[in-house]
Design a protein around this nucleic acid. Sequence first.
DNA 1: CGCAACATGTAAGTTTTTCTGACATTTACC
DNA 2: GGTAAATGTCAGAAAAACTTACATGTTGCG
Lengths: 120, 120
Amino acid sequence: MAEIADLRTRSVLPIGTVMLLTDLTARQIRYYEAQGLVKPERNAGNHRTYSLNDVDELLEIRSQMADGFTLADVKRLKHPRHREDSDAEVRKVLRDELLNQSRLNQSPDPGPTIGFRQSH
Amino acid sequence: MAEIADLRTRSVLPIGTVMLLTDLTARQIRYYEAQGLVKPERNAGNHRTYSLNDVDELLEIRSQMADGFTLADVKRLKHPRHREDSDAEVRKVLRDELLNQSRLNQSPDPGPTIGFRQSH
DNA sequence: CGCAACATGTAAGTTTTTCTGACATTTACC
DNA sequence: GGTAAATGTCAGAAAAACTTACATGTTGCG
């Protein structure tokens, strides 16, 4: 039973499987790749192949998007440009987010639990 | 990170991924299914979908085949008809196997480590 | 308000993968 | 030599994935 560890790093999952595991559309997954957030490999037939680590990253992105972050935010949070200002960076994004959130929460009926920036 | 436990039982892997993880051909995987040894589900497009448990079962089959067992043996070992004779069953198969092996080992140059019943 | 950027949807055309069914080949065994 | 088991291979059809391009809803801002 070595395949489970392999799956963590081994790129064998096609995009359809990743769609099922993440509840993301192929469009979203490819777009996040175009923005440099995931880097799947390709098989001999030029199809994207993902590892379970990729799936986890996509779940993380999905979570942060659901929290109202923008893709640029997610990218910055994942790749802080300098150690020195990474804290400031994070705090800035979080502050912006809080402001954003409070502004959005002024709207009536914010919905069940997670309401903003959820069109689909 | 709930997808890893899901993968144990959730049928999301297409046959191509299973081929990579098991080093079996699609022909072999489908044949083992036809013999009742694995039971993949089907997606909306009628494509087979496998779980990691299925992958493990296939690896087990592959291992036993490499040991010289026949598919019928594998099937019997997995589904003994009665509790009472399951031991006898196992012993019979193992005895047959030993006889088989010693007979085969009379042939000259048995190959590197595992040599018999390995065509590909 | 209006406009630009962001995120996603959708459609068309092509390539790759998977499907079923049939026939061929190899190997082991009586 | 003949039979059964296991796998290979091929053909035609359906599904999945790819790229490119255009459309749409949403957000932030002057």
